[in-house]
Design a protein around this nucleic acid. Structure first.
Lengths: 129, 129
DNA sequence: CCTTGATCCTGTAGCGACTACAGGAAGCAT
DNA sequence: ATGCTTCCTGTAGTCGCTACAGGATCAAGG
């Protein structure tokens, strides 16, 4: 059994974040030691790692929680997991496309800008309707 | 001179957002009519459009404000504009790269998942250290 | 003149996912 | 006894809005 600092080190989830997850009901409340401090089992640390992995993949906390619940359920069927993942993949794809559009637009805007100009063509464009 | 609703319609910036920009000091406080309502000139609406364009390009509000100030200054030299834009372009590029990595990782994870599986390989991976 | 509906006002709270304190109580090592 | 670290609770800040609540005012129609 580990204190919150150790759980943080082992899971890679920040101390404040662990307490936040607890407040939000993402992870179950840990037991407390005689002095009132939180105590974490290796299983509890496993949950934190799981959440960390989900977040690293860009899943929202709500999705991460859903995946965690799926992981905990007896029959962890792929169907629901795939559903969440595919939605997320689509969102990522859309975000990439959007950013690429921004990138292209911004590159075009800056192309005509050159140091020393008195009147900036980019500002000019930004002022347009 | 226009009321806030008309300014919103003409600039494409939401009413609440206009008031928010005012609170935050992004745009100057408009004059008030006798009954205390905000009144916007075409110039003021131009500022809102400018901000809208900046935000559409993904600039942070702080950057947008900086660009707006540059636009208003007498000598609007390209140097400072380019500086802000290039930083933003770099940030966009980094974000795209990051999202592509996520996309690839997630695609690999879901590849081994198939409907009807009793034990989901993706959840398995998420549980790992 | 009265009512209805649209628009406006201020002020506050909520979103997501943390992060950063403040202010205090333990524990541990010297 | 002292310092240092870790822990606790509770609150507020981040970003850029957005959504109310609760009220005032306006313009048009009957």
């Amino acid at each position: 059994m580990f204190a919150i600092g150790e759980a943080s080190r082992r899971s890679g989830v920040g101390i404040e974040t662990i307490r936040y997850y607890e407040r939000e009901g993402i992870v179950p409340r840990p037991e407390r030691s005689a002095n009132g401090r939180r105590v974490y089992s290796t299983e509890a640390i496993g949950l934190l790692k799981f959440l960390k992995n989900c977040r690293s993949l860009g899943f929202s906390l709500a999705d991460a929680k859903a995946l965690l619940d799926l992981s905990g359920s007896a029959r962890s069927d792929c169907d629901a997991v795939l559903d969440v993942s595919k939605r997320h993949l689509r969102a990522i794809g859309e975000k990439i496309a959007e950013l690429r559009k921004l990138e292209a637009a911004l590159e075009e805007l800056t192309a005509n800008c050159s140091a020393g100009n008195t009147e900036c063509p980019m500002l000019d464009t930004l002022r347009r309707s």
